[in-house]
Design a protein around this nucleic acid. Structure first.
Lengths: 189, 189, 189, 189
DNA sequence: GATGAATGAGCGTTCATTCAT
DNA sequence: AATGAATGAACGCTCATTCAT
């Protein structure tokens, strides 16, 4: 693992533990086991880490989606599996995701951001197109645009669970069903 | 206006101008025209302001919705107006909203959150019920749950605009149309 | 109890709990149940409380001495009782005594200090004179001067117990014996 | 001289000049000629300096004692010289000593205390033993215990001088004589 | 006398950043 | 490339003190 990768890995760890705002460069380098100055050879601030972290998150999400979605399942099942996968990532990393949004709001390094989420959008976009060609989804749906809406919808729904002091497990299941029904009606012919 | 209200109003102003992270307590009290110490009579840190600000944001959103939604319009038009109102608030306060949307993940002041968004959820929930009784929306829709999904969807869609370096105005319009179509199909019989 | 007395009593309490340096005027007035400004009607700072507190301590010590020293006992027993009484006060209030010394070192209100300890010195001085007239103590002892030395010796011996991490109870007894033997030899013919 | 030593030396200087309580970290670092932040690389607060300072004080006292006590003098003269040396240190550093004597009651850094004074106690203890073997001091004197009493007695006697608004020089001389007579009678056969 | 909200100077402390090694 | 001791500007925060009520 290169020093750069060590920094990113260490940053994710300490961000999860303390929250982004409370984390100092010193925390990160201590965890990474490198010298203070070394950090600046690769990043110019805490916020410039965000795209790198986001990339890892998107990779994790894509990996989870690919793992959970069965090729031979019908598209209704696949949609449920997609939702489930994204909820899973949110559960495991909801604090990191939150920090990505928070990071966004407070950084001027947004330009790199554009490309980060692209793989996930692309994946879903292709999935929609594929189902469309089978005739199960309305033809007037624009896959590129709708994929962004859907991912936003699922993520915000998943996040809402963690804003409330209820039984998260039970809540997660019903929330996923609601989202499934909602999207299904929005997409189907 | 009480000192506390002055602080909240000043904070919203400077947050908009500089972004939450760059704002210091000193910035806030200068704008509010009060002494440094007075801040701490009402809030214990910059982050404890958030629930108070969130309340104001929700109030602003509700006010905007009430203003834009015409009583005599049909429900399709009203939905468009709702979307438009929420996009408008997002445009004006998108950095503050990003923090709110991120669930204030970096703070530990989430407990009050539950009650903050309630008025907005309630309003939309009642709107759905009303349209349901007119027979325009599916009966198996549960207004309380779906209102949260819809607001999450609209807000995340509105936020996405600010993540990309495109023409925001044009983008905003097409994005609103997409959201409208999506929700319409999800709700209608 | 007058407001002034309430302040002194409250101050002793919170000083014992937090230590003088960490105590604020605010702590004192909260404990006393009075308003912030009221403090300044009676004292001009935390340090001007010290003489009043010291007076109370000396009163407590005198009361303890009078209580423990038996009139009909012989002078050796009485000396032991005196030592025991002062050790007792030190045990109960050693943090307050320490703060008095600390207070001393950091205040310019030392002038009032002179008179505070006087009653205790006087009491011991008279005791020495009385025993001298019975012929049990050397005639070349000057009661006024020696009484100060003795009280200083006993107090410092008592304080030493609390500087070390040993069994305080056992240590206290042997320490008292040492002090007794030391003083006896120093005084007797 | 290391940065740490520079800090300790500077602290002693400014403590002497302004008194411990009025001294700020800023005063110390200015005097030491180092940056504000550097202080915190070595100490976490003004109070954590105390053990380091106390060590220096004990060293100074030992040095003074070794300097003043003549090897060829008889033990009565040596005792006078010991008393004189301790009085001298008290005169120069009485405010710092007051804090030390108070047991640093307001701090929680007492644990190192036990070892700090040890060299001085040991020195006096060995002196007593030596005089005992010459037959000039009672055999039932326990050197370790009595050495603590004697040092406590001398220091408290020295401190008393600074509590009163009298002629300190004259007072110091008679006080030393009193202490000498007192100890002599307590120790001799 | 008594109050307590408001003050703001000044403190401790942090921590991103540098640079000689 | 890598280090980490040193820096010092800038921040949050405290709290003694005031004063209109």
């Amino acid at each position: 693992m290169s020093k750069k990768e060590m920094i990113v890995a260490a940053a994710i760890e300490v961000f999860k533990e303390k929250g982004v705002h409370k984390v100092t460069i010193s925390d990160i380098v201590k965890r990474a086991g490198i010298a203070q100055g070394t950090f600046y050879l690769y990043f110019s601030s805490k916020w410039t880490l965000m795209p790198a972290i986001a990339e890892e998150m998107v990779e994790k999400t894509l990996a989870m989606v690919n793992e959970e979605v069965e090729q031979q399942a019908d598209y209704e099942q696949q949609l449920q599996q997609i939702i489930h996968a994204i909820f899973d990532v949110s559960r495991k990393y909801h604090d990191i995701q939150a920090l990505m949004y928070a990071g966004l709001a407070s950084t001027e390094h947004l330009k790199e951001w554009e490309t980060v989420y692209a793989p996930l959008y692309d994946w879903l976009s292709e999935w929609i197109t594929a189902v469309q060609t089978k005739g199960s989804i309305r033809e007037d749906i624009k896959p590129e645009a709708i994929s962004k809406l859907i991912i936003g919808l699922i993520e915000s729904a998943a996040e809402q669970i963690y804003l409330y002091d209820t039984d998260k497990e039970a809540q997660a299941i019903t929330q996923q069903e609601q989202v499934y029904e909602f999207i299904m009606h929005a997409l189907k012919k």
